[in-house]
Design a protein around this nucleic acid. Structure first.
Lengths: 119, 119
DNA sequence: TTGACATATTCCTATATGGGAATATATTGG
DNA sequence: CCAATATATTCCCATATAGGAATATGTCAA
């Protein structure tokens, strides 16, 4: 089987950089399609296609306004993604703690290079 | 052009559900490949392939241990993802505030037309 | 209705998978 | 070196794009 459909969930939908750009652009206010096209310098059909994907996973909502369609983010849909990533927070702390300890150990050694070769 | 390579960044890498499963399994401690295979009931080659992708975007680190290879998460790499999603937090608050306000407004109106074409 | 404006959809194609099967590589013990 | 164990890689293939081009659909104004 091939890759999971981008329309399957928020994770797949935001994997596409252009869609993250669109979400960021819509973050502060709702916008008509043509503004997205102009702001992000994308082809209109391309924007419409991305918006469709975003809509299918509920990352954006749309309402008509005359001939235009105003899109806005549905931030709540990003929540699962944020929550998932957040579960790793306590491991970051562990990591940061270790990094800090290593840094201090180096400081103690004197004149250490800040490069961290941890692969 | 086709979809972005899954090896391009953390966003693409975690778009695959199986890889999220692996990350979650590795979250609390490092593990050899065969444990991942057993725990997640995946084919060994499949696990190795997913681990390769995760490694290429630095989401996991690996060290040899005799014949085995122990993998562990590099939670710091998940940070950009978490940070990105986190930028929407304040909009969630706005959204939640607006929802609350609308709800209260409706309460006040009492039995208003429930039609909300918002989609 | 007609024309203009705003979006959406369809068609086509190159590309990047992800899974299965088979095989290669690496490491340890005898 | 040989066998056994542990992982990684290669090959093949069905599939799902994402972008470009052309076209369809929808809405408003005169």
């Amino acid at each position: 089987m091939a890759r999971a459909a981008t329309t399957s969930d928020a994770f797949s939908a935001v994997a596409e950089p252009r869609r993250r750009d669109i979400l960021a652009f819509l973050a502060d206010r709702e916008r008509p399609v043509n503004e997205i096209v102009a702001a992000l310098q994308m082809e209109q059909p391309s924007v419409s296609k991305h918006l469709r994907v975003l809509r299918e996973v509920s990352l954006v909502r749309m309402r008509r306004d005359g001939r235009r369609k105003l899109y806005r983010t549905n931030a709540a849909a990003i929540r699962p993604l944020h929550a998932w990533a957040g579960e790793f927070e306590r491991f970051w702390r562990h990591t940061l703690t270790r990094v800090k300890e290593r840094a201090e150990a180096k400081m103690a050694e004197a004149g250490a290079n800040p490069r961290d070769t941890t692969s």
